[in-house]
Structure formats: C-alpha cells, structure tokens
Design a protein around this nucleic acid. Structure first.
Length: 884
RNA sequence: GGGGACUUAGCUCAGUUGGUAGAGCACCUGCUUUGCAAGCAGGGGGUCAGGGGUUCGACCCCCCUAGUCUCCA
C-alpha cells in the first residue's frame, strides 16, 4: 500500500468517527522555543495545556515533522529519519482510553476492503504503563490481544510529560512483530528491532510537578479535563506494509536512494558503509526539500543552520560514495516527484527550492575546495615532522573554521597514510557544545510564564476595532502587575491591561505596536507597548499617568492618529517594496521577515548576492511609480485556499487561520496575507527612499528604507551636505565628484614630486657629509644631524646612499633628524663593519635610549627615535664613542 | 545566542620575536616574434576593510565597527 494511501485511509477513518480533519501545520513551529514541528501534537499543545480553548472536541491530522536530534543515527537503523509524518488522533476533554484503544484496534485490523489496514492480529503486541490496570482491562475487553502479548513497562518508557510541570499521563504503545528473522522472541521488552513500535497512545490524565528526567517528578492531581494524544509513524507503517526493510525504502524515499546509487555506480546492498550513505542521501534530501518548501532557507543559525547541515551532509555522503560533481539538481527533482502526490504545493515551490539547493551546493563545493588546500598543507606539515597521525586540533580547526567535515578529513588523511586523532577531536567538539549550551541556559532563564494570560484567553478573544476606528470604548477585563493578577492599580504603576476590545494594533506581522493613550473617568494611561502574549489576546503595557482605576472600569482606547498614519505608510510601503523587489528580481526573492514603524521599514528576503546600485535604484523607482499611480489599497477576508488561488503571497514562519485577510495594492499588483493597518491609497505613502542594503547571513539580504516625511528629511539632509561639499570644492553638485577626482590625483602627483625634490635636496648634502667622515678605531664613521627632513624614509634613503659611498672600508652611518617634532635616528652598517663587530641595531638602541625612546632593526640597518629632540647631538656622539 | 577564521595591486594570494609592502596572472611601453596560457626588457597600479589605542615606529599587538566564511546551541 502506498504511503499516500495509508494517509488517506487514516484521515477518512477518523473523520468517520466525528474527528475534525486538520491540515498539517508548517514545519516551522509556531512555538518560538521549538525550531521545528517535532511531533504530531505540537500544533495542538495550547489546547492540551488549556492556554487556548480547543475549537473542536476531536481532531485528526497527518503532520509533517522534522527532528534532527538523532541525525548521526540516520541510515544506520531502520527507524531514524530526520523527516517523518505523524498520524494523530486527538481528544480534548472528550473521549478517553476506551475509545482511543478501540479506534486504534479497529483501524489497524479492519480489512483493507473495509477501509482499514488489514494488519495480522497475531503480529500485534501492546505495552502499557506498569500501574495502568484500566488500560490492560480495556485492551483485553476491546481487542483480540491476549494477556501474554501485553507487556508492562516503567515510567522511562511508558509515561509521557513535557519535562515541565503541566499535563502528564501513562501511554500505551502498539508494536508489530517482524518475525524471528529480525531478532529474539519475547516482545518489545526483549527486542525493539524485531518488534517495531507503530503507534503510541498517550492518556493525559494527571498534573505533574517539578522534577528532572523522565521519571523523577511528583504527580500532583488529576486533570479536570482529560485528553488523548496519539501518534502513529506513517513511515514505519508504510515500510511494514510495503514489505521493505526500513523507512528509506518506501515509495516516497526509495527513488532518491536508487538515483544516488546510479550516480555513484554503487549497488545498494553490496556494502554496509555505502548503504548507510545512500540512506543518508535519501533521507536528507527529502527533509531539505520539505523544509525549503515550508520557507526555511539555509543560514548560519537556527532553522537555517539545521537545513544547511542536512544539505552539506548530503554532499559529504555523495563524496564518500565517490561523486564529486554537483548532483542536487537531479536528486531534488526525484525527491519532489516522489513527494508531490502527498504535498501538491511542492510543484509551485519547486523553482525556488531548486534555485536554493543549487546555490547551496555550489557554495559548499567551494568551501570544500578551500578546505582541501588547508588539509593538504596540514598533512604535508605532519608528514615532514614524521608524524603518523593528524592531531585533533588541526582536525577540529578544519571542521570548525573551514567547515571541512571530519569524515572527509579521515578519508583524505588515510590516502596519505595518516590516521586521525578522533578522540581529541571529539573532546574539542564537546567543549564547543558546552560553551554554547551554557550560554543558551543562561539566556533561557527569563522564560515567562504565560498561564496568567491563559486565564483571560479562556474568557474569549480581544476584539480588534482598529481597522475601522482609532477610538473605541472598552471594558477592563483584567490587570497584571509584576506577573500577578490585581483588581486595581494606583497612579505611576506600569501595568498590563487586558480589555474586551481595543483599537490598538498589537505588534505582529512586522508592524510595530500602536502608540496612544487609554483613558476613563478620572484616569489616564500612556500605552508603551501592545503585544499578543497568547494567540487572540491583546495585552497593553501602559503607565498610569494619573488617577486610579480597576477591573470593570469603562475606558476609551485612543490611538495617536499621527503615529497610526506613519505606521500605515511604513507598512504599505513594505508591501510596495516587496512587490517591486519581486518585479525586479523575480519570485525567488521572497520576504523572510520585516519590521516597520512610522518613518522606517526593513525587509529581509532570500537572495544570494548583494544588489547592484542599478537594481536598488530600479526597486526604488518601481516603488515610487506605484506610489504615484495612486493605487487603491483594500483588505478582504477569505479562506486560505481561496487566497492562494488569488496568488496572494503568504509569508513563511507565519501561521494563518482558516479565514485570512488579504491586503491588495492596485489589485493583483500586490497581494499579501496580512493583518496590518494600511493607507487607503498608495499615494498616501508619499515617498520611499532606500537607505541601505546589507547581508544578514549567507543567502539572506536586508533592505532598509525611509518612508514619507522621514524619507524627505533624509534626502534634504543629503542635498544640503552635497551643496556644502560642492561649495568647499568651488564646484557645483553635479561636478563635485569629477572635481574631487582631479584634486586627489593632483595631491598624489604633488606628493610624488615633493619626495623626489626632497631626495635631490638631501643628495646635495652628500659631498659635505662625506668630507665630515671621521676615522674611529677601524671604522669610517659618518654621524650627523640633518635638517628639514619630512619623514624617516627620506632619512633612510640618504643613509643608504652614504653607506654605499664609503666603499670597501668598514663603514658606519648614523643620521639623526627631527621629524614632526620628534627625534628620529637611522644607523646603517656595511658588510665589512658588520664583520668587525658593529651592529646597527645595538647602535640605534644606544642612541634612542638617550633620546627617551627605543629602536631596533636588522644588523645592516636599524631605526629608532624618542621624545627629547634636544639630546640629538649627545645621542650621535654616543654612537661614535661606542665604536672606539 | 555563543565560539573560530578571513578582509593586502584589477584577479589569485605571499608577507612572525613590530623596522622602506611582495609574487603570479592581468594592464601599459619597447623589442623580438606572429597561432593555441608566447619570449625578453622596462613601467604604472596599494590610506594593507574602516575607526580608535599601545609604541620612537603598526600590515603585524590590543579594542570597537562593517563585510565575508565557518562550527555549535
């Protein structure tokens, strides 16, 4: 049975049991503490913990998931995949153990013709939590599993919790026996390779307390509303039902594995190491495909880094298989074709995915090339020292600084007959890991408890009136002071205010929060910040400027109209620039984040190279032409699929409800899903002026612009500055640049001439200096103070000329001069004098110490200086005397 | 978020106890030759990423900033 067919049957089965079918959420988790959606229940967590009331009693989904914790195990076992799909059925305070068990049994064992999976009842085993007698009784009652195939396990295996205080409960897991060929008898307790876990039923019935680990915490109480959370690994069931050995061989993955084998000329099954590499390629390509499809782009941190690592591990695996040429084009196309039935959106996204992976592959091949050079140098160095091993530090440096994978280092070193000190490499790796972890722990301490907001959210959502009006009448639902609910607050306090409705826009979708005041009978608050701590709930952080008020008070929320106009201009400008960007660069340039506030906007987008000055001007021009065209701006609500058929741009990393708001500027000219506040016609934006374009990491660029009056002010300022510069250059703004160029080359020419003239002038002194030469012991010595020397280099040239004139006798030249108020000394010693024991460095040191400084150089020429110019004569005499 | 490295001529890069910045390719001039990276001789081209500091003196040491690469969380 095809994987897609299992998925279809799953959803149909639970739909027939009155479950709401929920489409898979994005791999980019809504929960900021999670990098990715790591389990099927992740999108439902707020309903489980009671933060947000569940919109349905029963739900089912097939959720795409990415988990890279066990990335090193990929390909080695049958079970570890970095991308997988989790079938789940959920109950929020509705049915419990009885139904969960009975549904599971029915779906697994019902005949294929009747819509089930038709698994052999005799091969199914069950585990339960050791004390869960209720579950055992239900299994015996509702299924055909005999008691001897029900095994009890402890907390570590069969008890679920989030690791923190909150909901917890026992689990029951269903296993499939692959038969004696795969391991020993004795059920899952004895062998988890022969007995494959396919389905985990979690019975959330308790509240747990503080504690660490999987089993070291206290059970506090029963939950008032009990939940069911189950997860069936789609890939696992698929590989069992398709009669293959592991999840890398199922219909959605195998084609990539086969292609990798073909490209490398290997035969799958011939060699264990190569088989692992082929599976790694098959797994990682699929995960990367799905991640990019959901809007992740390769980067140096967070999600982007995980993706980059998957892509690089793929290149590495292909290298180890003997393929050095770029292959991503073929691999990803094959993977897309295998997945597109289940995820049709991959078709539209594919050109972007393809561009992204090709660029990343090319970049990494470059990295490998430069890394190979460093490695070869290191290998040669080690060999010349007679070492048989490449040390861990070098290996780590290669990995850490040059991104050269350890496996490749080992392989290449082996070819040169060297081994690698893996132990010390591993030690250095874990050091680096600890550093990063220690830091993360420190930062995480400020994790806020959202439960206080959850209480208010349970009472309903905050209505937003700000699209229609700037002032609204509202009622105070709650007040939070220092994380505690309070009933009233005095003047001067900073408090979180929860209202039933508000005209204030909370920061979201890149738009900053509104500013303004909240007032009522005898009191007034200034709003500092507006946030949505929990989806649907608006919290106003405000300072009480005067009076006192409490829960139940009637207030007026009043947004500062100037602020709102500025915010609307900036936000609409962001849409305009985004559309202009895509017009100039093509659809690959997609917004990955944005921020705007009155007068300013910032747009991050996926793009691999810096924008040229021409492109920036083009974007600016398209934007301002759109503003001049006075395009109508409108917003309308529609269903998400409908919005997609309209071609509305949905932003990655954002999650959308079933009903979405589409903001249009000039109809199809710009269509984006957006909840922000906008101007009503594009001309109201006024002006957009791009101020900066920069990199925010590889593959991601940032465009910043000023909007409206701010843009005008900046341009005015530049104009004033340019006029001033032109005036100073005695030129006009248009000619200033040319004029400056001429001036600069003139300056350069004059400097050159000056140094020539100076050298000539100094040369004129050579005859008189030579005549002042005295004989000191065996040395011919020229020692003199030279006036009017502009820099030490000129003095040096003169000294060398003098030395050359001395000829064959042992000669020493010591020249001093005052340059920029500071004494400088140069001493040169010819070869013969050096042979007789004179050292330029020593002589300079002697002189410069007298001058109150220091000096040094080589044996033939040295220079020094000091601070006390009056001692110059004394210093030169000292040099002469020391030669006696 | 925490580390590591890099930024030198148009391009690719050298440059250690801090003491006048170099090579190859490209460019210009001349000669010699005329085909597959031609030879010889000569020449131009650098605020050594930017800004501070230490020092008599900084491409080099220290600090800050920017850009680029890279590892880890």
């Amino acid at each position: 049975m095809k994987t897609a067919e299992i998925k279809k049957r799953w959803l149909e089965f639970f739909e027939s049991k009155d479950h709401q079918v929920v489409p898979s959420a994005s791999l980019i988790s809504e929960d900021p503490s999670l990098l990715f959606t790591v389990a099927g229940m992740v999108p439902f967590i707020p309903y489980m913990t009671g933060l947000i009331p569940a919109p349905y009693k029963r739900a089912t989904s097939v959720q795409k998931c990415v988990r890279t914790l066990d990335i090193e195990e990929v390909g080695k076992t049958t079970r570890h995949g970095t991308f997988f799909q989790m079938n789940g059925n959920f109950s929020f305070g509705d049915y419990f153990k009885r139904e969960a068990i009975s549904y599971a049994w029915e779906f697994l064992t019902k005949s294929v013709d009747a819509g089930g999976l038709g698994l052999d009842k005799g091969k199914l085993w069950v585990t339960v939590f050791q004390d869960d007698e209720e579950a055992i009784a239900l299994w015996l009652e509702l299924s055909d599993v005999p008691l001897e195939r029900i095994q009890r396990r402890g907390m570590a295996d069969n008890y679920w919790s989030t690791g923190q205080p909150g909901p917890a409960g026992p689990c029951s897991e269903i296993y499939y026996d692959r038969g004696p060929a795969y391991g020993i008898e004795g059920g899952p307790v004895a062998d988890e390779n022969r007995y494959i876990e396919i389905w985990n039923l979690v019975f959330m019935q308790y509240e747990r307390g503080l504690g660490t680990g999987k089993d070291n915490f206290e059970i506090l109480s029963e939950l008032p509303s009990k939940n069911i959370d189950t997860g069936m690994g789609l890939e696992r069931v698929a590989f069992l039902m398709q009669g293959v050995e592991n999840l890398y061989e199922i219909d959605q993955v195998r084609p990539v594995l086969d292609l990798a084998a073909e490209l490398s000329g290997k035969t799958y099954g011939d060699n264990t190491d190569d088989d692992v590499r082929l599976r790694v390629v098959a797994d990682h390509v699929r995960s990367a495909l799905m991640l990019i499809g959901d809007g992740v782009s390769p980067g140096n941190d967070g999600r982007g880094y995980v993706l980059r690592r998957l892509l690089r591990r793929t290149v590495r695996a292909m290298r180890l298989l003997g393929v050095n040429e770029p292959v991503f084009g073929k691999l990803f196309l094959t993977s897309k074709n295998a997945m597109v039935d289940a995820y049709p959106e991959l078709e539209h996204e594919y050109s972007r995915i393809n561009t992204t992976v090709l660029a990343e592959e090319e970049a990494f091949l470059r990295t490998l090339t430069s890394g190979t050079q460093v490695l070869e140098t290191a290998i040669n160095a080690a060999k010349s020292l007679g070492a048989k091993e490449l040390d861990g530090e070098t290996t780590f440096l290669l990995h850490d600084t040059y991104g050269f994978p350890i496996d490749l280092t080992v392989e290449i070193a082996e070819e040169s007959g060297l081994t690698v000190d893996r132990e010390s490499f591993t030690a250095l790796m874990s050091e680096q890991r600890n550093r990063a972890k220690a830091d993360a722990k420190q930062k995480k301490a400020g994790n806020t408890d959202l439960s206080v907001y959850g209480d208010f959210r349970m009472q309903g959502v905050t209505a937003f009136t700000g699209y229609e009006e700037l002032e609204s009448t509202a009622k105070v639902i709650g007040l939070i002071l220092d994380g505690q609910q309070v009933s009233s607050v005095p003047a001067g306090s900073i408090v979180d205010v929860i209202l039933d409705r508000t005209s204030f826009y909370a920061e979201s979708g890149g738009q900053s929060a509104d500013a303004g005041i909240i007032f009522g009978d005898g009191f007034e608050l200034e709003v500092l910040d507006v946030q949505k701590p929990v989806k649907g709930l608006v919290s106003h952080k405000a300072i009480v400027r005067k009076g006192e008020f409490g829960v139940g008070s009637t207030v007026t929320t009043s947004v500062d109209p100037d602020w709102r106009i500025g915010a609307a201009q900036a936000h609409s400008a962001t849409h305009v620039v985004h559309a202009a960007l895509r017009q100039a660069l093509g659809p690959t340039a997609l917004q990955s984040g944005s921020y705007n506030k009155p007068g300013y906007m910032r747009l991050d987008f996926s793009w691999t190279a810096a924008l040229s000055a021409e492109t920036k001007s083009e974007i600016e021009e398209i934007s301002n032409l759109a503003i001049r065209a006075d395009l109508a701006v409108s917003a309308s609500f529609m269903s998400l699929p409908e919005a997609r058929t309209w071609g509305a741009v949905a932003l990655f990393g954002e999650t959308y409800d079933e009903s979405v708001r589409v903001v249009q500027i000039g109809g199809p000219w710009s269509r984006e899903l957006c909840g922000g506040t906008h101007v009503s016609r594009s001309s109201q934006i006024g002006l957009v002026s791009i101020t900066n374009e920069s990199s925010v990491g590889s593959g991601s660029r940032r465009l910043e612009a000023l909007v409206g009056m701010e843009a005008l002010h900046a341009l005015t300022q530049e104009r004033v500055l340019l006029h001033k510069i032109a005036e100073q250059l005695k030129s006009t703004p248009l000619n200033a640049s040319d004029r400056l160029e001429v001036l600069l080359s003139e300056v350069k020419e004059m400097q050159r001439e000056l140094s020539v003239v100076q050298a000539q002038q100094l040369s004129l002194q050579i005859p008189s200096l030579m005549s002042s030469m005295q004989q000191v012991s065996n040395f011919s010595v020229v020692a003199a103070e030279i006036a009017n020397v502009s820099n030490a280099d000129a003095l040096r040239d003169l000294a060398i000329k003098l030395r050359d004139q001395i000829g064959e006798t042992a000669g020493v030249v010591a020249l001093g001069s005052v340059v920029d108020g500071k004494p400088a000394v140069i001493v040169t010693v010819n070869a013969k004098a050096q042979a007789t024991g004179a050292k330029a460095g020593d002589l300079v040191r002697l002189a410069s110490q007298i001058l109150g400084g220091g000096g040094g150089g080589k044996a033939d020429i040295a220079q020094g200086g000091g601070t006390d110019a009056s001692k110059m004569t004394e210093a030169l005499v000292a040099i002469t005397e020391s030669l006696r």
